[in-house]
Design a protein around this nucleic acid. Structure first.
Lengths: 227, 227
DNA sequence: ATCGTCAACATTTTCGAAAATCCATGGATC
DNA sequence: GATCCATGGATTTTCGAAAATGTTGACGAT
């Protein structure tokens, strides 16, 4: 049995491995990435590693300095707020279109995705890694399906990219223990409004949802600065 | 004197060269890209060429098939309309924010950029390549400056990417000889409304502008299909 | 003491060839 | 005749080393 599902090229494996390491935080924001270390991590030569870094850079997860190599993109409150506002705009519109065009099958997928997500407790800390990964996946699926009926491949693509780009920030917010939030209920409200075709209300709920996450992470930034 | 301004890495040169070849149409939509040919075109080894293709693929100009190489992304009416709608949404919002936050300096840059663009006749066919390249550059600058005061790096980045992604379609529309359009006037109206802080009117003018381009290219697609 | 120069070193970037994969062709079997 | 499998050539992907570039620190001049 292999350690990890192998993609069709080593470069894709390297991309997945580094991407995961960055999102999980084992490669820290701002950290310089040396080829020797990444080659050890991925178990391959320099070419596929470099290819992975080029892709990651194009997607904003790493930055490159000519002839000085690559490093993990830093995090900042400014970027977080920027991402959240962009998501409110893009996913808000995509959701509106999805509600407009979605059929019964879409409703079904949405219900199913929400169910899968709601069944998994998010806050549980006893089985942290595996279960959290699982929840993250279902959470991503829910948001993907939510806008899947919008009819615009570009909107879907951009929303997907912003979703993963928000990932590192979202994981920070999970580490905040007590929040006065019921994330399940927030998702539920979005879904219910969507299925009842209350477009404006659904979009409003979605934007609230993102703003709440943004607020939580912003508070976290401020407490960290205070240290 | 060098043929082309050299970037700091060969890979960046390769990216620029292939990007230009695709945008100018000398590499045609759907065309398979073989490393041997691209190496001849760029005058370098396979590594930087491959790196360029990975970047171009991440940005949507090429597509990759594992172990089967790369090819130029195809064009379609559907994608054109999708791009235009996304641009209306994103640039519309970016323009609104820019009008909200822009100061006198922004107004000045905008006036200057428009002046530079208006001075260059677009339709002229006698000095096609050089002058058209020049106009394209000033046109891009105008649209870039228009939204430069929006305060959102992400919106600016996304709008920029959509702008270049619309490039191949825009060049098609230029080849349509007689259009009942006055592109200079369209730009002028956007700029005037922006400076007069008529946000809604400016956004409306911008969206009209894009829709007109879209309509022109859509007609072109239809006439080509009829052949 | 400060600044600039110049080695030696560390690291990235690029090369040219080897390895892996795909695709077309032809021959064997049912 | 159709299907399956092997074989060869074409192409991409990956490797390991060479070349190019950036960095550090010592040394000398101002």
């Amino acid at each position: 049995m292999k350690d990890r599902a192998e993609a069709r090229t080593l470069a894709a494996d390297a991309y997945a491995a580094i991407h995961r390491a960055i999102r999980s935080g084992s490669l820290k924001p701002g950290q310089r990435l040396r080829f020797a270390e990444l080659q050890a991590l991925c178990g391959m030569s320099v070419s596929p590693v470099r290819e992975a870094l080029v892709r990651l850079t194009a997607e904003g997860f790493t930055v490159s300095d000519d002839h000085r190599g690559f490093s993990v993109s830093p995090l900042s409150v400014e970027e977080l707020l920027d991402i959240v506002n962009a998501r409110k705009l893009l996913e808000g519109e995509a959701l509106r279109l999805s509600i407009e065009h979605g059929d019964a099958e879409w409703e079904g997928h949405l219900l199913a995705a929400h169910h899968l997500m709601a069944r998994l407790p998010r806050e549980r800390d006893d089985l942290p890694t595996a279960m959290r990964e699982d929840w993250e996946q279902r959470h991503a699926d829910f948001h993907r399906i939510l806008i899947s009926a919008c009819g615009s491949p570009i909107l879907i693509e951009l929303c997907g990219k912003l979703f993963v780009r928000a990932d590192r920030y979202r994981r920070m917010s999970v580490s905040v223990p007590k929040q006065n939030r019921d994330v399940v209920r927030e998702h539920e409200r979005i879904m219910t409004c969507a299925i009842e075709r209350k477009a404006e209300e659904a979009v409003e709920a979605l934007r609230d949802h993102y703003q709440q996450t943004a607020d939580a992470v912003e508070r976290l930034f401020q407490t960290e600065e205070a240290l």
